[in-house]
Design a binder for these strands. Structure first.
Lengths: 204, 204, 204, 204
DNA sequence: CATGAATGAGAATTCATTCAT
DNA sequence: TATGAATGAATTCTCATTCAT
């Protein structure tokens, strides 16, 4: 009688794949790609190194997926906001706020997103990720300029700078004191910086 | 009779030290920290690997100095502009333009400045470098706000975002076609983005 | 009540065993022992890796049997020819022709027969296989010499050399051009070489 | 004052390279490519694994050189004999005798010459090596046939078979008893086998 | 019995650092 | 003092074998 894979086992499998991804992501978030060796990922996931290769054909594939899955989620969030109702400026503010808030919150994709990966394939994926963030803002800028709500400006450059500006929030502990409060100020600071930059300053 | 180091020898020593630093910087600029192995640095400097260790106790120390010396130069340039005459907005524009122009021009410290170094010590130095760039802009923002030329805003955040925005320009090939012309547009795009962001928009 | 293995089940078992052997042989024939991993054998046989170990205690045992069963067949073919009627020279020619023809025909056991196996046990089996081929030719030589049809000569050496000579035909693509025709010439070339070597040259 | 490499040091270096080659060759001779891991080669040479890579860029390069250098020597010996004076049959006998004698003598390139290497690059080199042996015999056959000393026959096939026949001497312990004496008989057996095969039988 | 995920030892390769010369 | 050969730990990846299900 053939062996039938139990649903419990399938759960275990899916679980392992996820654990590997989470381990990898956590390690990158904590100390960059530097610390994310296969051995370290395996140890953290409670698996052997060989097990990693059942789920990912090579190290690069694992980290490309780490990057992509994290960015998929983030971009989806931003896109939802960008596609929402309300005036362009508000949506742009909301998008920046949404991203930066999560970034400030905890160690997630942040570091990976800017850090130089050891692998060229991963590096390529990283650049594409940055582009994808830019796309969301390009769309908002295009819409705003077309509607005469935003002043004429370079869409490509604007999008890139926004991404750069809030990326910065991910790298440095800008305000090392008074975490919670400072975060709030930091987030709003970035939001307003970007808003002013694109000419969507609040009517004050 | 005590051995007296000849001035000629001292020159040689200083010369070697400089050559090592230049080799290291060039290698990082060309291919990131990835390519900057001690062996590669030594080969490029026309020295032996052992010789490197006469001038630098460890790899990390060498690259910390590479980073610092490169940033010393850049910050000095920016500081000079910031300390110059003319209104704050113009000086801020000039500072951004100065940095981004050189960055776009050729692969120099740019890459090193954003790339993840292999070493924790170097990573720390890199973060400090970013701070140092920020300081220049903080000064300008402070001055501008004090003089009521710039609107009230978070100085820390503003400075960070400016650095982030123009850092972004270093990472991606925003406009892969029409190099020269596009660079010009890119540079001015970033300059204006930052100017608007801090409320130093041109009188249009 | 004791468990009675149904004959249907036994068939299944024998079937699996055969499938495993066939898979292994095919893989070795295609790319040497290099490509014949347990995983590959299992996949090709449509079984799990674990199943292999139900039929063979270890990888080496599987490949020893692969070798032996393949050689059983070949040796049986040769033996039939050697035991046939007609003069010794003709039979020796036929035997060499039979072996070389099949070898040239397609990738079968040929490669395995000469290739270095990954395992010491298999290596030992391989050497024994070569001996077994030799035995057939020893018999023919003995008979021929006894009947004064062949000149006096070392039987052991003669047999070994014949095996060596036609083994060589398996290793190199002697004539890469004009496949069919060349094969024919190659085969007859080897046949006549061996015939002359043992003093069974055609009456010319 | 620049450091000048002493000739003693250069000797050491050349010595190491040679030691590595010898270790590799010995390991292959003893147990095939299977046993010749970089670790094993290094250990046997009294060096670290890293040291191997100072002399050989990759494992394949090391073993290609092992193969080539061994074959260079052998082929040179054979060529010298083939280019000598005397009738073709005598030279052919001498060439075969020369090769087989050394092969029987001790574990040298023998195994490597026939064994399947783990590496495709090495495999390619191995096939070329076999061809090179063949070339020497092709030359002799061509000369003999042209001078009407040898009967008409396929030169390519003849050369291949000769190589095959004496290769066999390398693989198996044809005569396990009475080493010395048997070797003598084995060697002459192979010599005469090949001589008869090409039609250069002794006038008896 | 069958399954195939997991193991873990081992392979090739790299590179910062040391030290005999 | 300069050299660069040597070290050896670390890294990625493979695969025969086991065992919970």
């Amino acid at each position: 009688m053939p062996y039938r894979r139990s649903s419990l086992m399938e759960e275990r499998l899916a679980d392992n794949r996820l654990r590997i991804l989470k381990s990898a992501r956590a390690l990158v978030a904590e100390g960059g790609f530097r610390q994310a060796s296969i051995t370290a990922v395996a140890a953290r996931a409670g698996l052997s190194t060989g097990a990693i290769y059942r789920y990912f054909p090579a190290k690069a594939d694992l980290f490309v997926e780490v990057l992509n899955s994290a960015v998929d989620y983030e971009v989806a969030m931003l896109q939802k906001i960008a596609d929402g109702k309300g005036d362009v400026g508000t949506r742009l503010r909301a998008a920046v706020r949404s991203f930066v808030s999560r970034a400030v919150e905890g160690p997630n994709l942040a570091y990976a997103f800017i850090a130089e990966p050891a692998d060229l394939e991963v590096e390529a994926a990283r650049l594409i990720c940055r582009e994808r963030f830019g796309e969301v803002f390009k769309q908002l800028l295009r819409e705003g300029i077309a509607a005469n709500v935003l002043p004429a400006q370079s869409i490509d450059v604007g999008a890139a700078c926004i991404v750069g500006a809030f990326t910065e929030a991910l790298v440095r502990p800008i305000t090392p004191n008074a975490k919670r409060e400072a975060s709030k100020a930091l987030i709003e600071g970035i939001v307003e910086f970007c808003a002013r930059a694109v000419g969507a300053a609040k009517a004050s």
